[in-house]
């Protein structure tokens, strides 16, 4: 490190990570008071993919559907359950309330970036959900005997695909939630996002089982890249070209939602602080 570059503690202080970490700790302390609520929430999110898995496993019978047998379908859906919990941005449901009730004042008065509030909630949430999910998925795996054809490139590419999927799902929901600066009920748009993720992101069915037109639409829209893409990367269903195209689409949508988030935040806060909170 050169003498002119900032030291690690300077970077730490510049990014005000100490404050961000304190927010995470505060949330964990709060959530420990009603942990069963979070476990029930995580259980609720697990149900739709579990039902879809059982339906498709029954449909496959002893044969296969588009090359996926019962064990492949079990593996696909168990991976999808975990990826769904990691990428689901529950924080976005609270952003509209912060804006409507004026609670955003508390966030705006803190000497740390306001986005930290949402990021801390996301990070704290993931840890709590995974404490519940990992044992449940492990038990299901023992019962269902999943089979997945791992490949090294697939395994290596899974982690970035997962991180980008979370970032995309979070930022896409965040900019929608920020519309609460203008309309009082932006939550409906988050509900619509969930529905589209259910239909087009491999939950109701693996994309390979959808009709060709639906598959085409799913590959164009951002929702596949929030959930199905990392699972497909992990299960080695794609060749190198498909994987690169997938990453390019995922990053393009991520960049687009980051820009929309920035725009909505800048204009929204300006509006919020102009009309009073």
């Amino acid at each position: 490190m050169s003498a002119t570059s900032p030291s690690r503690s300077a970077v730490f202080s510049m990014l005000q990570l100490r404050g961000g970490w304190a927010l995470v700790r505060g949330l964990w302390l709060s959530w420990l008071q009603y942990r069963s609520f979070f476990f029930l929430l995580a259980f609720g999110w697990m149900i739709p993919p579990l039902i879809a898995m059982l339906v498709w496993m029954a449909a496959a019978g002893d044969g296969s559907l588009q090359g996926l047998n019962r064990a492949n379908l079990a593996a696909y859906y168990l991976a999808l359950i975990l990826v769904n919990q990691v990428t689901y941005a529950q924080t976005n449901w609270t952003v509209g309330d912060l804006i409507r009730t004026g609670e955003l004042n508390r966030v705006l008065l803190r000497p740390i970036p306001p986005l930290y509030d949402a990021l801390a909630s996301e990070f704290a949430g993931k840890v709590v959900y995974l404490v519940f999910d990992l044992p449940v998925v492990a038990v299901l795996a023992m019962i269902l005997r999943p089979e997945m054809h791992w490949t090294l490139p697939g395994l290596l590419a899974f982690l970035p695909a997962l991180v980008f999927a979370w970032a995309l799902r979070f930022l896409w929901g965040y900019w929608l939630a920020l519309l609460a600066f203008w309309t009082t009920r932006a939550d409906a748009l988050l509900g619509l996002q969930d529905t589209l993720v259910f239909l087009l992101a491999g939950q109701v069915a693996p994309l390979a089982l959808l009709p060709p037109t639906m598959q085409y639409i799913a590959h164009l829209l951002p929702f596949r890249y929030m959930l199905a893409f990392p699972v497909e990367v992990l299960s080695g269903q794609m060749d190198t070209r498909q994987m690169f195209t997938g990453f390019a689409m995922q990053l393009a949508w991520l960049l687009f939602s980051a820009l929309l988030t920035l725009l909505c935040w800048r204009l929204g806060v300006r509006r919020y602080t102009a009309v009073g909170g």
């Binding site: 970490w21 505060g26 000497p111 740390i112």
Partner: peptide, 20 residues
């Protein structure tokens, strides 16, 4: 500034961290 579900001492410590 207080977190609703936890004792104030925890909230105050979190605030101390936020304000460095």
């Amino acid at each position: 500034q207080m977190l609703w579900d936890i004792p104030p001492l925890d909230s105050l410590r979190v605030l101390g961290e936020i304000y460095a």
